[in-house]
Amino acid sequence: MNQDLDSRILNYGECFAMKFTKQGKAIYHLQATTGYVVPGTENSFSINVRKSSSKKGDEKQHTVTIKREGAKLYAEPENLEIDKNDVVLWHADNPEVHNFVISGDSGQIQFDSSRMEQYSVYTHAFGLEGEYHWQDAYGSKIGGVIKVKSPRCLDKKSQTKWLRSLDKQNLITISGNKVEPAELQIVTGQTVMWAIEKSKGISITDSRLLTSKECGAENPRKKPIKKRKK
């Protein structure tokens, strides 16, 4: 099981979620690498965002499972009908499904799990002890530290205590250059959720995975993604 902390390429144990705030039909693709795919090609899936029928605060979450058939990735369900302001969460259902990117276009906005923008969420379950200094691989100045410790469970009681601690809520919010909190202490097996309120396209990447060039690189996509004209 891949344990790299890197939202640019998702793996089992990680999720990408997005809140859809505009009506319209979004077409998205599942890829094994980063990079935008022109909509309309094969292996595309859809999300039809309707006018909201629910009250504010009643927004729903829809979960899409990423599966693999041979070398091909596919989403289940392939097509979703959701209300405006609902959240869609993508995840892999087994460790054999690794290295995937979700990228799509709703006609009004583009979205890409490898470059997260407004109303995106990335989650990562930490399986290995250590100190994880994360940053944005695209060069913004955001970053933080996750300190992961492993308790030593030598008996059933301590195992149970540890297992009960795994549903702890660990949330980091990002709004522009503001990261809250910048440091978190968790135990092995806990999940951290990054929620992005405002962003021009960022990643959550372990600094150790970045070359020095990447660390100092300017964001190659300097401008925010423009809305497509109809």
């Binding site: 099981m1 089992y12 144990g13 999720c15 979620a17 809140k19 605060g57 927004e59 979450q61 979960t63 302001n85 959240v87 969460l89 995840h91 259902d93 460790p95 109303y119 969420v121 989650t123 379950a125 297992l163 795994l166 549903d167 702890k168 809520q169 949330l171 919010t173 097996g189 999940t191 959720m193 929620a195 309120e197």
Partner: peptide
């Protein structure tokens, strides 16, 4: 074998987001 539990967090500007249960099958 064990499973990481489902975690739900209410995010002010997004709403409630829940991760799925993730089961660990030892290699």
């Amino acid at each position: 074998d064990f499973c990481l539990p489902r975690i739900c967090i209410r995010i002010p500007f997004i709403g409630r987001v829940c991760t799925p249960r993730i089961c660990i099958d030892w290699p």
